[in-house]
């Protein structure tokens, strides 16, 4: 049958639109010119600058981002998984409130969560720093993990748990030896999402950060704001893009292999 040419053309233009800024950014990271409007020759100097001792603060910020993301991922995986189990297992009044509690942060604009946490920390007299960033990140990651695990629980056969009980397993033994291994892929997927969201978060972190606790996005933002070393941001961004692509490709590969094993 005839395909709509118009729709395909729009799709092509949208793809150009989506990748144009990224291509220009990557090209500029190898561009001798400082402002990147014109091509002034190929260079690696912005990469060298990125790894020079002058830009040590970038790597410190990167380290902090990794630390916060790791802890936030761990906490949100624990809390999110218990939430998903409760939402799946029971269907009463309590769980419908619980569902609302999990769902609302997903539709709340980030800046609102940032300002409300800041005001609570201020009201409670808590000084802001890495701990408050960790609390904030855990709070918004819980909902994403819970939703991901809940989706996985939808094709979970509850008779498996019952079988474990019938064979004499207690609730804890059944959870850790039967339910958890089955849920693990869902938890890993939720954890990956949480890690990505935490490492990338700017707005909420911006509100609850304290002196000396800047994460990588905050560091990049202040470099942009003060127009400091723009070409170095290009090289840093290119490396980040490369890392993301490798991670996405790796997770695709793992998912495909698992699918193949399962269908066998």
């Amino acid at each position: 049958m005839k395909r709509s040419k118009f729709a395909v053309v729009v799709l092509g233009l949208v793809m150009v639109f989506l990748y144009l800024p990224i291509v220009v950014l990557v090209a500029n990271s190898f561009n001798e010119a400082k402002f990147g409007g014109e091509w002034a020759g190929f260079t690696f100097k912005w990469y060298k600058a990125l790894f020079s001792s002058q830009n040590h603060a970038i790597w410190e910020a990167f380290q902090r981002s990794i630390i916060v993301a790791t802890f936030a991922t761990f906490a949100s995986c624990v809390i999110g998984t218990t939430a998903a189990v409760a939402l799946h297992r029971w269907k009463g009044r309590l769980q419908s409130i619980h569902y609302g509690l999990i769902y609302t942060p997903l539709v709340m604009p980030e800046i609102l969560m940032g300002i409300s946490l800041l005001m609570m920390f201020t009201a409670a007299g808590i000084g802001c720093g890495l701990t408050t960033i960790w609390i904030a990140h855990t709070t918004f990651c819980v909902s994403y993990v819970a939703m991901t695990v809940l989706a996985r629980l939808q094709d979970f056969d509850d008779r498996i748990t019952e079988a474990a009980y019938d064979l004499g397993a207690g609730p804890f033994y059944a959870f850790f030896h039967v339910v958890l291994p089955i849920l693990l892929p869902g938890i890993v997927a939720g954890g990956l999402l949480a890690f990505t969201l935490s490492i990338d978060d700017f707005v909420i972190t911006f509100f609850v950060t304290g002196p000396g606790a800047d994460t990588l996005p905050l560091k990049i933002y202040s470099m942009i704001k003060h127009s400091r070393q723009m070409p170095v941001i290009n090289s840093l961004s290119t490396l980040m893009l490369l890392m993301t692509c490798l991670l996405v490709a790796a997770s695709r590969l793992v998912a495909n292999r698992r699918r193949r094993v399962r269908t066998r």
Binding site: D200, I220, M240
Partner: peptide, 28 residues
């Protein structure tokens, strides 16, 4: 579909920065 979602996995602040450079008076 993967290509459309790929930018989502990259840093948001970096994407906005890319546009800022692109739209710059000295930009592309």
């Amino acid at each position: 579909a993967g290509l459309i979602m790929l930018p989502f996995w990259t840093s948001f602040i970096v994407r906005v920065f890319a546009w800022r450079t692109l739209l710059n008076p000295e930009g592309f």
